[in-house]
Amino acid sequence: MKYAYSFLAVIALILIAWLGSQIPGMQYFFGVAVPYLAIMVFLGGFVYRVVYWAKSPVPFSIQTSCGQAKSLDFIKPNRLECPTTNAEVVARMALEVLTFRSLFRNTKSEIYDGPKITYESSKWLWLFGLMFHYSFLIIVIRHLRLFLNPVPEAIAWLDWADSMFEIGTPAMYMTDAGLLIGLLFLFTRRLFNRQVRFLSLLNDYFPLVLLFAIGVTGVLMRMFLRDGVDINAIKQLAVGLATFSPVISTDIGAIFYIHLFLVCILLIYFPFSKLMHLAGVFLSPTRNMRNNSREVRHINPWNPDIKPHSYAGYEDEFREYMVEAGIPVEKEPTPQKDEA
């Protein structure tokens, strides 16, 4: 049911954008007001969330060491999995963020029982996850060409590289396919892997469906519904938005408004959802701390003042036994008084 709600929500959003943008005058609302609102919510929410996290201190040094630590000279440390310097932490983080190191960690042994069909099933998550995220990143960067005039060379090059196989007219972007295939995998995995389905929430299905709808409307606009879409008008609007002087042309098709509206919803949804893992991964103490906690003292700002049960109290209680057992004491026992 949870996934069904996600579909319903996205369909409702599509209808709102589609019908809404047909109402005369509402183009300005969907083309200008909503995008500005979305950007503001996104930036504001993003900063708010990061500040909210950062306000809490990291009281203890709780890195997860995933390799040999630096100890004796003759024992080779694993600098990437168990960093001791800031540079090594950066490298570890880069490996994590750029290659999804931890997801890849599922090294399997050589011994298998039964058919090898499900061989390293968990690597698929890594592969499709990586594919989705990189495709998404490149797509976002590619879209900058709409906002920038003239288009920077790097972006133009990226655009060319992404469509270099020249499949179809206009040439299909590889990343569009990568994004959609990745999302499809992540969605079906959530649905059919019972374990994952058991723990999935509406908040897990919804962004997948939303992103998929964004991808599909984008591809539709470029590949199939080109006639209804005036790319120049879009560029004019995008550049206008970027320079705070938006111009709405009436020639922009409904499909564009749907696409744009869904993107705006994504931006608004982002800071309040698990999508914030984008920022969170950098702040995760188990990954971003150095494993040098015995070499350099880590400071806890709220370190409470707690004293141990004192040695004096301990000796007072056990002094006779200690003296009898020949254990040195600080104070010699006082002779027993018979006052009672």
Binding site: S109, I111, Q195
Partner: peptide
């Protein structure tokens, strides 16, 4: 309860019950 996993995962160390 975790039937699915126990059935699918073939690595004997990652899935001792199933194997």
């Amino acid at each position: 309860q975790a039937t699915d996993f126990l059935n699918k995962e073939k690595d004997r160390f990652a899935n001792p019950i199933g194997s």
